[in-house]
């Protein structure tokens, strides 16, 4: 797919939000109560309403404005601007969320005589939350990163000499006792919640398990690339293809610069962070970075560079 086609498809994805909002507003304006319900309490009862005109105007203003920002970002994508893709995705989410909530509200309110009679089905709440993420993801996937793939990248130097058929692997781990303790404390903290509000307790318990689980990060370097996994069972796993890697280095990883602990996505790239300290930082061919905290990463960086060198040697 060339850039023009990708930009066109991304624009089509962005325009779904204003088109659906405007279309539903036009089609259903006579069939919904005025004022329309805009907020529901925990038990599903309506506890907030707004005049249909004001509601529609406010939603359309936000949706149109965010869509314009998204379209602007899409137009700038592929011209060496690193943030265009992320900006477009963010603006798409910002446009799609009010639009999908508006559509869900009006569809739920269709045919009701009074605002108080309207119930919002769980399915529409889930869809209205998920669809904006899907739209943002689609836009982000369609737009290219900083530099186009295929740009010539110099082969990095390495002190590790590899024969062509030799099989080699580097495995390293980093673990954080603090994260483990934090997860356990959070888990114990949910105990009283089970007797009061069990859905909240369940959600917090899952979060506690997740925090405790990511206290170990395992990184593996082999001729397929780099695989990073979490927890004692090495699951889930993220793979970086060797062909996508330009170079590697060992560096100090400061969690807050990468967006925190766990699996993070920041503007500079992705990171698997268990603790502060040494880690392996990969520079990818699309200009993004990938970082993983591991103990003694120097040998890993040397091996990645040697493997990248061997790949370009054998591909020639």
């Amino acid at each position: 797919m060339n850039l023009r086609l990708r930009q066109l498809l991304a624009a089509v994805a962005v325009l779904q939000a204003p088109l659906w909002a405007a279309g539903v507003a036009l089609c259903l304006r006579g069939d919904v109560p005025d004022p329309v319900p805009t907020h529901w309490g925990i038990g599903g009862e309506v506890d907030g309403t707004l005049g249909l005109g004001a509601f529609t105007t406010a939603v359309l203003a936000v949706v149109v404005l965010a869509s314009l920002v998204a379209l602007g970002c899409i137009a700038r994508a592929g011209r060496g601007t690193a943030l265009a893709g992320l900006g477009a995705a963010g603006a798409t989410w910002f446009a799609a969320l009010p639009a999908s909530l508006y559509v869900a509200t009006l569809l739920a309110a269709e045919g009701a005589a009074r605002a108080d009679d309207v119930r919002l089905p769980v399915v529409s709440i889930v869809l209205a939350t998920v669809l904006p993420f899907v739209a943002a993801l689609v836009v982000h996937r369609l737009l290219p990163g900083t530099s186009g793939p295929g740009a010539p990248v110099p082969v990095p130097a390495s002190s590790v000499a590899l024969a062509d058929g030799e099989r080699v692997v580097w495995v390293g781990q980093a673990s954080s006792r603090r994260l483990l303790v934090a997860g356990i404390v959070l888990g114990l903290g949910t105990l009283p919640l089970w007797f009061a509000v069990w859905p909240a307790a369940l959600a917090t318990a899952l979060a506690a398990v997740a925090v405790a689980w990511v206290h170990v990060v395992t990184a593996r370097v082999d001729d397929a690339g780099v695989a990073v996994s979490w927890g004692p069972a090495q699951w889930p796993r993220v793979r970086i293809d060797l062909a996508d890697i330009a170079a590697a280095e060992a560096a100090e990883i400061e969690p807050l610069r990468w967006g925190g602990w766990g699996y993070r996505r920041a503007t500079r790239g992705r990171a698997a962070v268990a603790r502060r300290g040494p880690g392996l930082v990969l520079t990818l061919r699309d200009g993004q970075q990938f970082a993983a905290t591991v103990d003694r990463p120097e040998a890993a960086a040397e091996l990645v560079n040697a493997l990248v060198g061997r790949l370009s040697r054998t591909a020639r």
């Binding site: 058929g165 099989r167 580097w170 040998a299």
Partner: peptide, 8 residues
Amino acid sequence: MLIRVDPA
């Protein structure tokens, strides 16, 4: 740690 094997 780094491990290398030579199948030959």
